[in-house]
């Protein structure tokens, strides 16, 4: 990969806050922003909890409806 293309990727990551970089002379050092990664993970965990909740409620709804029908 050519350096300019590589820098585009780096800037994209830096722009989204996933990494921070600092340049000393000709050397650029990149470091991962742990907080940002954790936040991303937490977001997906939240989406998962939302869908888990929905699935739980659907399950309860259909099994409760079945019990009612049977007892009729």
């Amino acid at each position: 990969m050519a350096l300019p293309s590589f820098m585009k990727h780096i800037h994209c990551l830096e722009g989204s806050g996933m990494i921070h970089t600092r340049k000393e002379g000709r050397v650029r050092t990149c470091a991962i922003e742990k907080k940002q990664f954790a936040a991303v993970e937490a977001w997906l965990t939240e989406q998962r909890a939302l869908w888990e909740g929905r699935t739980d409620r659907l399950e309860r709804f259909v099994t409760a409806a079945r019990k009612k029908e049977k007892s009729k």
């Binding site: 699935t55 409620r57 659907l58 399950e59 709804f61 259909v62 409806a65």
Partner: peptide, 26 residues
């Protein structure tokens, strides 16, 4: 999310696709 629901497929389908039922669990 994968789950085995103890009800026939037709019952789960109607809980999803009947608006009045859907409103009760979404």
């Amino acid at each position: 999310i994968a789950r085995v629901i103890k009800a026939p497929r037709s019952v789960v389908w109607s809980a999803w696709t009947n608006p009045a039922s859907f409103e009760q669990w979404w």
